[in-house]
């Protein structure tokens, strides 16, 4: 194939598409008149295009429109009754329902495990020395005669006449958790109050107690009893030494009482309905 032939053959497609200018057309025809090879090639290309053009498209099957309309009708039915279908499916497949229930509980369980919740249910009140608390005796409590000298009253103390002047709730303090697992390694025991609080947090008897700090310890109120737990400064220092040197930490209040020489006063709780 000579060089001119190649350039002419590039024009074949446009010739077939009738996109050549008159000049180009004449030029090409001129060449074709004396080049057999190009004439044959062009003929073949024309035949190829023709072969496609004359392809007879098969007719669609009878009632093509009908089958489309039928499909559309089915589609709209299934769209409309999506809920119905879903509920019917759930009824016929009860295991799916059961599994989704189980899945929900497993999910909730894992959620509870991995999202740390505040560890203490104990409410911690501001530390404020109570004037007049020391003088309160069991008889007075029972009679409801004790007078609160302070400004703040918890609802319980108002009801019972119990002087809990130091009760001014601090949300921040209530949030500060001491995790049980950390107690041995990361105790904050700078005051007697903190020491006693960490002891009773370990004691299941004080699980739902309300705890109020006082000067040398805490007042803890359970449903049955009000405890006034304190430790003298000398005993507090001994206790710290015991903890840090011997790695001893009591698991209950009774144990701590012996170990650290705690002073414990136990009064019947005014919340206790049983006289």
């Amino acid at each position: 194939m000579s060089q001119p032939c190649e350039s002419y053959r590039k024009m074949f497609n446009e010739f077939i598409d009738q996109e050549l200018t008159n000049e180009q057309c004449q030029d090409l025809e001129q060449h074709l008149s004396h080049c057999v090879g190009c004439r044959k090639e062009l003929e073949l290309l024309k035949l190829t295009c023709q072969a496609i053009t004359i392809l007879e498209s098969p007719s669609p099957p009878p009632n093509f429109l009908g089958s489309i309309r039928q499909k559309l009708a089915q589609e709209s039915i299934s769209k409309r009754s999506g809920w119905e279908t879903a509920s019917r499916w759930l009824i016929t497949h009860p295991s799916v329902l059961a599994l989704s229930f189980i899945g929900f509980f497993v999910f909730a369980f894992l959620l509870g495990r991995f999202i740390p919740s505040p560890q203490i249910s104990i409410q911690v009140a501001e530390l404020e020395p109570v004037k007049g608390w020391e003088g309160v005796r069991e008889s007075q409590l029972a009679l409801g005669q004790a007078q609160a000298p302070g400004e703040y009253f918890s609802t319980d103390s108002v009801r019972s006449g119990l002087p809990l002047a130091m009760v001014s709730y601090s949300a921040e303090k209530a949030q500060a958790p001491i995790m049980k697992s950390e107690i041995k390694t990361r105790l904050i025991l700078q005051t007697p109050t903190q020491l006693i609080m960490s002891i009773i947090k370990n004691d299941p008897a004080f699980k739902s107690a309300q705890i109020y700090p006082i000067q040398q310890g805490v007042v803890a109120q359970t449903r049955q009893w009000v405890y006034r737990i304190s430790i003298s400064d000398a005993n507090f220092i001994n206790a710290l030494a015991l903890i840090s040197e011997k790695r001893l930490f009591p698991t209950s209040l009774a144990e701590a009482e012996k170990l650290f020489a705690l002073e414990i006063e136990k009064l019947p709780s005014p919340l206790n309905p049983v006289k």
């Binding site: 498209s57 007719s59 669609p60 099957p61 093509f64 489309i68 499909k71």
Partner: peptide
């Protein structure tokens, strides 16, 4: 329908496929 069905047939080379696709096209 003739043009769509015919084109589908020529592209797919199969009558059943052509019918299926042509229906989907109109849907």
């Amino acid at each position: 329908q003739n043009r769509v069905y015919g084109l589908c047939y020529r592209i797919m080379g199969n009558l059943e496929e052509a019918e299926e696709i042509a229906q989907e096209v109109f849907i």
